[in-house]
Design a binder for these strands. Structure first.
Length: 819
RNA sequence: GCCGAGGUGGCGGAAUGGCAGACGCACGGGACUCAAAAUCCCGCGAUCGCAAGAUCAUGAGGGUUCAACUCCCUCCCUCGGCACCA
């Protein structure tokens, strides 16, 4: 008998697959297409770990099954290779990031091929390839030309010790990742993209797609839409107004003061009138220094300063109100100003602390609470019935809101307004290893786009990859690159030295797979039309609010300007699912520092790629976090060896005629077919295990035909083994190109079943009956049983419940007389 | 604080109203072997019992139902996301 030797057979089949066209997607085929997408990896120096492999294996199973079902499958891979770790490596070792990237992608490619993933390697892409980022830059230029990219002064993370700007991911718990120094805020000019203009569509169009519900919810929450009103408060002794956004205009009559964000421009505009300006500016300065963490510390009590000398008028009550500043009011949400009353905890607290008058106007349903609210003992934030509110008294909060808005609206003091938490997307990075932003600044003409014919703007070679002391990208120091001509007036001008964030290259990569070599467009319209939208996109939950949202936005933009065919529709991904993380042994996170990273190379070496694949699918539900269990891997290897041994026998036993096994096989085909589609890979594997166990119990009388079908359903999971055994059967073609088997529905119908007999809902006996037995027949047989006779003990049967094909339940206690 | 997911043997998990613990790991016993490994067979939630069997058991407590891991209410815990958003 031959011995199972994965090292030998796996390499052999990998060579055959990758040297043939079996996994190649064909542009312009008449077949139905299926586009499966996994998030392309960042090729780090550490290589793949088993957590990366899990989604690749899962979608590989889907891809292989879809091909067998006759689809033209696009299942591509590439490298999202710009980014900080490679840059940091370059800084430390003085090796060019491109060199390191080359080395890392070679390693990743080898590792992926090692586990037999059926990617179409002819479509491999790399975001750091100038032929690729030419189009990343082109997209930026379109955003710029449509006015969606603009430069603005905003706060960046600044490390005072390293004297450089930091990306958010370099700030760990408010400290610099490299030196541990506390990170400060520093104002710098940055490019921003107006994603906020698409906020509404990014919410609405979620109705068009099949994403996991939690993904939709997270995206909606991130965008943070709230509908309310914009209310004007006139400034006393001035023509000016202060505008406030509120979702609770029903509480306007209890508004007794106004609070502004410390950064609010109103303060600068009216500083002459502010009597305690020094104190106000001091408060503003201290609020700026305080890190986000201190500012949002939940235990911190509220603080504020009054703008003395300034009052405004409540448009509803006509009362004069003081104006305060407090750091819990955020500059960049709503209008950076709120009206304050006794129906908001923070306002309530601030007023109590500084003795600002308070009033209530909402009565909660609970009488006890209501009295405490009225005496200002407690703060009530919920809705209720209005009082102290003139003609609106007695209305509920929900009824009152539109009425108050239109009442104030008639006086020009209020209007309906929708606000979003989503902010414009900061698109500048002061780093080397990213796409140069293709813009030129001219003293006379301002910011000018690089002419499209001059794209790509290639990253020049530098000696030092470190950001400059002033927090700029090292490109600033490459004078002959920076200094250029203005494309408009031909006068002297300088290039933008900021580079793009990581997200820039990954925004649109799924489009490039359709035509990875195209040098005239992102990809040809014809191929985009054929392949898009992506049918199934799987990725991590950590990308739900950044990558997934950004790429939906960029796609919508490209769709709007006609850069992609209209026929695709406004959404790039039809379906989005997510995988669970693979944790280290014992349930802790897998990380280099903990030394518990499992490298797939080692598992492949010890057990084989098929064992790794089976184990990663079998270990637990695909969408759930799951700890790696080194001991558990052998179970998958044993399963594979059982199949291997069984096939040796089955091959010679061609005359087997075991009906029970055939039935079991068809049940397995059904289960595996359904489970793959539902991403229930763990139970798909276990059903195949059950079948193999049944074969062994049944004396290994597996017919050749049945073995063939079994190998077909096995092949997406353990493709190398399936190919090997397929060729052992004497076939010339590959197993992965066979037709997916259909189960025979008639065959799996049971003729006889074990009928469960219950007394008062408890199982007391089981009897074999015909599956289609009627209640009368079942009752008759059930009541004959000795056990049942004893349990009934001549008591009267009150009720009989019969579930055909399942159970019969005799109720002998009278439950209706129960108290 | 808000939103989401989850809590089942020693462990990973299965069962979406109808036999709780499929499948796998670990463990125990047996067969084969000079021996070991591999393989095969048997057992494996708890308690009581020689046994047949009975009772209890799916985070806790209540409820709906002939029947609840599954549905409803209250609470506890774990994980993930957002978080002074007016």
């Amino acid at each position: 008998m031959k011995k199972y030797n994965p090292q030998k057979i796996e390499r052999k089949w990998q060579d055959k697959w990758y040297n043939s066209a079996v996994f190649q997607a064909k542009n312009g085929s008449k077949k139905k297409k299926f586009y499966l997408l996994v998030e392309f990896p960042y090729p780090s120096g550490d290589g793949l770990h088993v957590g990366h492999c899990r989604p690749y294996i899962a979608l590989d199973i889907l891809a292989r099954k879809k091909r067998m079902e006759g689809y033209n499958v696009l299942f591509p891979i590439g490298w999202d290779a710009f980014g900080l770790p490679t840059e940091n490596y370059a800084i430390k070792k003085g090796i060019h990031p491109a060199t390191a990237t080359q080395k890392n992608t070679d390693n990743f490619r080898r590792q992926i091929k090692n586990i037999g993933i059926s990617f179409d390697w002819l479509r491999e892409i790399n975001t750091t390839d100038p032929a690729y980022y030419k189009w990343t830059q082109w997209i930026f230029l379109q955003l710029f030309k449509k006015g969606l990219a603009y430069k603005s002064k905003i706060d960046i993370n600044w490390c005072p010790s390293c004297k450089t700007g930091l990306a958010n991911e370099e700030v760990v718990f408010g400290k610099c990742e490299r030196c541990g120094e506390k990170v400060e805020k520093k104002e710098k000019e940055q490019w921003l993209i107006k994603i906020t203009e698409y906020a509404e569509r990014l919410i609405e169009d979620l109705d068009l797609v099949d994403y996991l519900e939690k993904i939709k919810i997270q995206q909606k929450e991130w965008i943070g839409k709230s509908e309310g009103a914009l209310v004007k408060f006139s400034v006393e002794g001035d023509e000016d107004f202060l505008e406030v956004f509120t979702t609770r205009i029903d509480t306007i009559f209890s508004g007794t003061f106004l609070i502004l964000a410390p950064e609010h421009k109103f303060i600068d505009k009216h500083k002459d009138k502010i009597q305690d300006l020094e104190e106000v500016l001091q408060y503003r300065a201290s609020a700026k220094i305080a890190s986000d963490i201190e500012r949002t510390n939940e235990k911190k009590s509220v603080t504020g300063v009054e703008l003395k000398g300034i009052t405004v008028r409540n448009p509803a009550t006509g009362e004069e109100m003081p104006v305060w500043i407090a750091d819990f009011v955020l500059e960049n949400y709503g209008t950076g100003a709120v009206f304050a009353d006794a129906h908001d905890k923070r306002d309530f607290e601030l007023a109590k602390k500084y003795g600002i008058p308070l009033r209530t106007s909402i009565e909660p349903a609970d009488k006890n609470i209501a009295s405490q609210v009225k005496t200002l003992e407690i703060c009530y934030e919920g809705e209720g019935a209005l009082y102290n509110s003139m003609q609106f008294n007695g209305l509920s909060s929900a009824e009152a809101r539109p009425k108050i808005i239109s009442w104030l609206g008639e006086k020009g003091m209020a209007s309906v307004k929708t606000s979003y938490k989503l902010r414009d997307w900061v698109f500048s990075r002061q780093h080397y290893w990213g796409e140069p932003i293709p813009l030129i600044f001219c003293e006379n003409c301002g910011w000018q786009p690089v002419p499209e014919k001059d794209l790509p703007v290639e990253l020049p070679k530098v000696k030092n990859y470190k950001p400059t002391k002033t927090g700029g990208s090292p490109l600033i120091e490459i004078k002959n690159w920076v200094n250029t001509k203005c494309p408009k007036c031909k006068g002297p001008a300088r290039r933008e030295t900021d580079t793009m964030p990581n997200w820039a290259g990954s925004n649109w990569y799924f489009l490039r797979y359709c035509g990875p070599k195209n040098n005239k467009k992102l990809a040809a319209d014809k191929t985009l039309k054929y392949w898009l939208p992506v049918d199934w996109y799987n990725g991590g939950m950590e990308h739900t609010t950044l990558h997934l949202l950004y790429s939906r936005f960029i796609f919508k933009f490209l769709w709007d300007i006609g850069a992609v065919p209209k026929s695709i529709g406004p959404e790039p991904y039809k379906k989005r699912t997510s995988h669970g993380m693979v944790l280290g042994e014992g349930g802790i996170k897998m990380s280099k520092s903990k030394g518990n990273v499992i490298n797939p190379d080692n598992v492949v070496k010890e057990y084989g790629a098929d064992t790794l694949r089976i184990y990663e699918m079998f270990m637990g539900p695909f969408d759930q976090m799951i700890p790696w269990d080194t001991k558990g891997v052998v179970g998958s290897r044993r399963f594979i060896e059982k199949i291997y041994r069984l096939s040796n026998v089955a091959d010679s036993n061609k005359s087997g005629n075991n009906k029970a096994l055939k039935k079991a096989l068809h049940k397995t085909i059904k289960k595996v077919t359904e489970d793959i589609g539902a991403m229930k890979f763990n139970t798909a594997v276990s059903s195949m295990m059950e079948f193999i166990n049944a074969c062994n119990v049944q004396g290994r009388e597996l017919e050749r035909d049945d073995l063939e079908d079994f190998l077909k359903i096995l092949s997406p999971f353990a493709p190398h083994l399936a190919e090997e055994l397929w060729s052992d059967l004497g076939f010339k073609g590959m197993c992965c190109s066979q037709k997916w088997p259909k189960y025979n529905a008639k065959l799996i119908e049971e003729e006889k079943i074990m009928l469960i007999i219950q007394i008062n809902g408890k199982v007391r006996d089981k009897i074999e009956v015909m599956a289609n037995a009627t209640q009368k027949e079942a009752e008759k047989i059930a009541l004959k049983g000795e056990k049942i006779k004893q349990w009934l003990n001549n008591k009267k049967i009150k009720k009989v419940i019969f579930v055909p094909g399942r159970l019969i339940n005799f109720v002998i206690t009278d439950f209706s007389s129960k108290i």
